[in-house]
Nucleic acid binder design. Structure first.
Lengths: 363, 363
DNA sequence: TTGTACGCGTTATCAT
DNA sequence: ATGATAACGCGTACAA
């Protein structure tokens, strides 16, 4: 019962009890009337600003509570210019890496009161252009999170032209803040493990070559593999470098290609666990023992890797999402930074049962 | 070069070339001035409404193009009351079922010009209450998609009080539109397959019992298993009914529990493929042959199931997302329907190598 | 500490 | 077919 008196409350009551019984949501004016103050004071009170006496604030809050008042996000956005919404651009929602980055970013951003608006751009050029050309982003978001999307130059231009803070994950581009892992080092780590076990013939199953150059992930990991090979004094045969599509099915195909040769490699390094799992399956199909006949190592530490007993190099995906969210929060709240920030998170080797020394007669 | 003349264009140009060179986005007024018409006409023209002469429309569109004008979503929302945003409430982002439902819903809703705002409520009560209590949804969304979240009564109340169209997936609640599969029939299908192979001792690995009653999925599937058992003239031992948590790890634990008994079942039916994969792993750990010593069947048709050679009952997850999206679009555009709609999508048995007849000496 | 009043950019109503 | 103009609900100088 606020001091405003029952009469005021009655007049200010938002849910009009008219004949139509149409539910109306109460506005700042209703609260102001009920609390006997101005709308400006209500605005200050509900947002927890200074310059409001404790008594007044209590009265306003009580009235707001009584009227179940909620600030209208759209009205607030219109006048403030901020939406408290972060747009997130992903090529897939249902793949491990993207789902988990999203999960981490959502977690952190929600902690800071931001919402996530989803832009699943897919891989089809048609869908892609629809999403980014039509100006669907303009005015909807305060910031952007771009996850490993292989953007075309004009799409980069569209995103840049929004003039909002932008952070990428797994996509290192000049001018944009970035959270990543050291892909070169990661590939090197995996290859060094195989070489350390005594393997001399290592095949590499990478990502698809048709994608834009920006998706350098698979290329960088191969760079690391080459580095380890050089250090180990072994050469990578060109025929042992395969392109795939990051999926289990692609891994199966690549694995079969390799294993059906008269002289197959003794070890396979896949750029993702999903492809590595496919290779494991191919080995089974071809009647090969793992790791006796073939060692297999992946990159990611997908949750299925444990049950597949797959050796892998783990990357902190959830944390990359959180880190990206934090960079965005900083950019939205703090002063503008002159230098771009690049945060590189560590990866680590996880040895399981899919790797072992090669058969002596093969060495 | 619109007939408005270069003078008008110059005055109306939005990107002020002042000293600060601050990028300003052009408004409907700028376009109106440039095209020599009123803002009302611009509004009609850009939205493709009637009552605009072709010449005028062309002139307006040219001006808009020249000024790279985009309608302000927030301003439009404020006056129209619609946001063209659909809120989606999920307990997880990184699990197969949820990620794929989301993918399907996003696809269809984007086709219709709607955006998705993400609400990952998780399972922790604390997070949950923060997300749904604070009125974060109010005024932000035109409709809601709720995916298999085990909501508490007060959360149901919060969602209902928004008075927007609401569709659930995998969560059949009175009063809310729903897209689902027939869980009873699905469980029955899986069990009937095992019984048809000759199994008489079937264990069931279901979902967690601690969750709210609304998450009836695991219970319904068990109901179907019971029905098939009755039809097949066999009884389910109470000790063979296990609770798990829908994950691979949970499936491993359940599988080990079963297989370490002196008298294990000859077949296991898991309520999800992820748990079934865990059971497969447990069988390997315990040195059992699949399907020789143990048959395993799951439900879902997870993409990993193929490479695990797992027999399963497939459910159309992507399509459930699309169907839910369509129901929402209908509800937002069409006239209000008096009856609630329940759409039940079909499931089908996918026989792979993880199931076979039991060993004769065990029968 | 509190109130007044303007403006955010658009849609919609009512004239014309 | 087109144009004024009143909302939409709120933040924020500025005044008191």
């Amino acid at each position: 019962m606020p001091p405003g008196g029952p009469t005021d409350l009655k007049r200010g009551a938002a849910p009009r009890s008219g004949p139509g019984a149409g539910r109306t949501t109460s506005t700042i004016h209703d609260v102001a009337r009920a609390a006997g103050v101005s709308t400006a004071t209500v605005s200050r009170a509900v947002r927890g600003l200074d310059r409001v006496s404790p008594q007044t604030r209590a009265r306003v809050l009580a009235a707001a509570e009584a009227l179940s008042y909620t600030v209208s996000p759209v009205a607030a956005s219109l006048v403030s210019g901020r939406t408290r919404v972060v747009g997130v651009v992903v090529p897939f929602l249902n793949r491990w890496f993207f789902a988990n980055v999203l999960d981490g970013a959502e977690e952190l951003l929600r902690e800071h009161g931001y919402h996530l608006l989803l832009f699943n751009v897919g891989t089809h050029q048609t869908t892609r252009s629809l999403v980014l050309d039509h100006g669907l982003l303009r005015g909807r978001v305060d910031a952007l999170l771009v996850v490993s999307a292989d953007l075309r130059p004009e799409e980069v231009e569209v995103l840049s032209s929004l003039h909002v803070p932008l952070v990428t994950v797994g996509l290192d581009m000049a001018g944009w803040d970035c959270v990543r892992i050291d892909d070169v080092r990661t590939g090197e780590l995996a290859a060094a493990h195989l070489i350390g076990l005594g393997h001399r013939r290592i095949a590499y199953v990478g990502g698809d070559p048709s994608e834009d150059v920006h998706l350098a992930t698979a290329v960088d990991r191969l760079l690391g593999v080459r580095r380890a090979a050089r250090a180990g004094g072994l050469r990578l045969a060109r025929a042992d470098l395969l392109q795939s599509d990051w999926t289990v099915a692609g891994g199966i195909a690549a694995g079969q290609t390799l294993l059906q040769r008269p002289d197959p490699p003794t070890a396979v390094l896949a750029a993702s666990d999903e492809m590595a799992i496919g290779v494991l399956h191919a080995a089974r199909l071809c009647g090969r023992q793992v790791p006796g006949d073939l060692s297999v190592i992946g990159i990611d530490d997908h949750e299925m890797s444990f049950s597949h007993d797959l050796t892998t190099v783990a990357q902190p995906v959830h944390d990359q999402g959180r880190a990206a969210g934090q960079l965005l929060v900083d950019a939205m709240t703090g002063p503008p930074l002159s230098e771009r920030r690049v945060e590189t998170l560590p990866t680590r080797l996880v040895v399981r049962g899919s790797t072992g020394p090669p058969r002596p007669d093969w060495g």
